[in-house]
């Protein structure tokens, strides 16, 4: 049975009385074990959603439920146990003097015993492929490596949700690949929902569902394939369209009809192959 792990009910948020609404009447749910990508251009309100989920900000209107608990000043310490977050800037979230200290930080905050910490440091660093860097200082790590440590730090407290808030935006292509591989590896972990916030459509292909934000509202909500099909509209709200989607359109113009919206090269080639062998 799948249950709503996160529920937004008519949530509106602004930074001050005289400020414009950053989010207006946003409602959605995210299930257990689900991977949801939230996309939108800069300023569309997508990062605000992340901060509302773990009580770094509170909405003026509406309510947010995490695993049935309402997010309030009183519940945030419990909620932060369930919601782990990785932010954009790799440097500005590395607290510890070394990799192991950083992974320990969240556990120390929760008074977890030393033995458990040592165990979990090993297992989580292993999960993100950083076990050889236990004693390394942050300034000797690449951006991608720091972000993987940040993911391990979050996993160490076994949250129910992992939020990546533009965690790849400041990385080079290799760093991005590292993070996306790490994340899709984690998807198999049981009982972990994933929310990836990005403006890169390439990164949402593997998600179960995509929330597209525009002007503080949910512009669309569907599986990636359906989102990709709306090329013109996506461009209008300042988002990119993946290569395969553009090519599929060009092929249509050239007289080749692709059966269904391709998500990646393999699918497009497969479709072309089917067409080719049919004729």
């Amino acid at each position: 049975m799948s249950t709503n792990l996160i529920e937004f009910k008519d949530v509106s948020f602004r930074y001050g009385e005289d400020q414009p609404w950053v989010l207006k009447n946003v409602s959605f749910t995210i299930d257990e074990d689900e991977w949801v990508a939230i996309i939108g251009h800069n300023g569309s309100g997508k990062s605000t959603i992340a901060k509302l989920i773990n009580g770094l900000l509170f909405p003026q209107e509406g309510e947010i439920l995490i695993d049935g608990k309402k997010v309030t000043e009183d519940s945030i310490w419990d909620i932060r146990k369930d919601v782990g977050m990785v932010f954009q800037n790799p440097d500005n979230q590395f607290v510890g003097a070394t990799v192991q200290d950083d992974v320990a930080f969240g556990m120390e905050n929760r008074g977890i015993s030393r033995e458990t910490m040592v165990e979990r440091i090993e297992s989580t660093l292993n999960a993100v492929g950083m076990k050889d860097y236990l004693l390394t200082e942050p300034h000797r790590l690449s951006g991608g490596q720091k972000q993987r440590v940040a993911i391990a730090s979050v996993l160490a407290i076994s949250p129910k949700v992992l939020i990546l808030d533009e965690a790849t935006a400041m990385l080079d292509p290799n760093g991005r690949k590292e993070i996306m591989q790490t994340v899709s590896g984690l998807q198999d972990r049981q009982g972990l929902s994933l929310i990836t916030i990005t403006h890169d459509l390439q990164e949402v292909v593997q998600a179960d569902r995509v929330l597209v934000m525009n002007g503080g509202q949910i512009w669309d909500e569907a599986e990636p394939r359906k989102i990709f099909a709306k090329k013109e509209e996506l461009r209008e709200i300042g988002l990119d369209v993946p290569f395969v989607a553009i090519l599929a359109d060009a092929l249509l113009d050239a007289g080749i009809t692709i059966a269904h919206e391709p998500l990646n090269h393999e699918e497009l080639l497969e479709d072309l192959w089917t067409l080719h062998s049919k004729t």
């Binding site: 310490w77 146990k81 607290v95 192991q100 930080f105 556990m107 040592v118 407290i157």
Partner: peptide
Amino acid sequence: ELAMAMEARGYQGGHGRSKLRE
């Protein structure tokens, strides 16, 4: 940003903390 990241990771002062470094 660091303060926010620390808060998100459950930091609420020294009370009730354990320590890795011994």
